[in-house]
Simulated scan of single mutants.
Amino acid sequence: MKIIALFFTGLFLISCGSDDASTSPIPEETMYFPDNGTSVWESKSITSLGWNQAAVQPLLDYLELKNTKSFIVLHNGRIVMENYFNGHTANESWYWASAGKTLTATVTGIAAQEGFLSINNKVSDYLGTGWTSAPIAKENLITNKHLLTMTSGLNDALGDDVSPANLQYVADAGTRWAYHNVYVKLQDVVAASTGQTWDTYFNTKLKNPIGMNGMWIQNQGLSVYWSNSRSMARFGLLALNNGKWKDTQLVNSNFMQQATTTSQNINLAYGYLWWLNGKTSFKLPQTQFQFNGELIPTAPNDLYCALGKNDQKIYIVPSRKLVIIRMGNAADNENMALSDFDEILWEKISAVIN
């Protein structure tokens, strides 16, 4: 009787184990990272994601109509869409414009985690006094964080020139948000604090580890990044993964979280040189007017993005594991960052992914 009881007990345990195995969840797909120095990049299909194939062609038609050069969609790191328009090719470079501000923010975060600088220290600790034409007491209020958050208090109406004569006091740092190219002084702070050129430190700490191509090109005193489209997508993938590339945490995840959440209470839709969706209000370049509502109402609430002149875009949507990039000429009229194009483009994207 004991032998029979043990036999049936064994069958019961096997049966339970089998049931548990059949109902266990399917392992979540791991995030994919392309290797450096190769054109190989894993892909997946629209249909495998259950997206709307019928909405793809209207999206592509709209992109081409609106002067787009390249458009890439990554899902969990894998390419779902990669399209080139108007004679542009995968190997050609294009400018990031102000979307490249996020490169500067990221490398500033790397330099901070390596102990070369503190974002809370004043800029003059690294550049010396006189880097602006503001009174010294007012200049010394400006910290690296103020440059990251566009709250330097310097006059944003004097053009792109960031020479001391053109960096004039308007308000105390931290009391006024204004989109200003003074952020580029962070590159000088990184160079001064590390004892390396900006290009060298950038290449060593960010460009080379994630396999980007491209270079910084000087344009009227500003460094503007140029690269191919996949390099922009690589950087977007790093951001989606909170600063981690494969098994290496290149920039502290806490810094990335701070960079992609509201950084001050003047413009809720701005982090550390990243734009943020899903907030109750926002401000735009070249105006002090506060707009009520979300930055891009047709986009997911958790979207954050790098926006550059004439509609250079890196969209990150953590909840959907998406990176979307768009490079090209201005969709309509010349613009500094956000344009009406964003809202309509997201209507077209949403028709595909929903």
Rank of each mutant, 00 (worst) to 15 (best):
Y62W: 08
T151A: 09
G77F: 03
A337Q: 07
G159P: 10
L206D: 01
F235H: 01
P58T: 07
K101F: 05
N254H: 10
W198C: 05
M81Y: 11
T248S: 09
L49S: 08
V352S: 01
S98H: 02
N52P: 13
K101N: 13
Q187D: 13
K348Y: 12
V184H: 11
T204H: 04
Y315N: 05
F255S: 12
Q113G: 10
Q290K: 08
F71M: 12
A173L: 09
N252C: 05
T260V: 00
Y169I: 05
K2I: 14
A134D: 09
N265W: 05
Q249N: 12
D20W: 08
L148H: 07
A134E: 01
Q264K: 03
L307P: 04
D199T: 11
L307F: 03
G50V: 11
E82D: 12
Q286F: 09
F8Q: 05
V224T: 10
K205H: 09
I217N: 13
S124I: 04
G17N: 14
W41T: 11
F235M: 06
N301V: 03
D161N: 15
K44N: 12
I136K: 15
K185Y: 12
Y62S: 07
W198D: 08
V190D: 03
S223L: 15
T204V: 12
A330F: 02
I325S: 05
Q218M: 10
G115I: 02
N267D: 10
N83D: 15
S98N: 14
S70G: 14
N333H: 14
N91C: 09
T106M: 02
Y201V: 04
S231A: 09
G278P: 13
Q57V: 06
I296C: 01
M212E: 09
M215V: 14
Q257K: 12
A337P: 07
S93P: 03
K283R: 14
L158C: 11
L167H: 06
S231T: 11
K2C: 05
N155E: 15
P25F: 06
L147I: 09
A137T: 14
W41G: 13
R326D: 00
W245P: 08
W226T: 11
M232V: 06
I210E: 00
E294F: 07
S227W: 06
K207N: 14
G50W: 02
S263A: 15
Y95H: 12
T197K: 10
L322R: 01
V189R: 03
N267P: 13
D161I: 02
N267W: 03
D302W: 04
R326M: 11
W96M: 01
I110P: 08
Q168F: 06
M212F: 07
W274A: 02
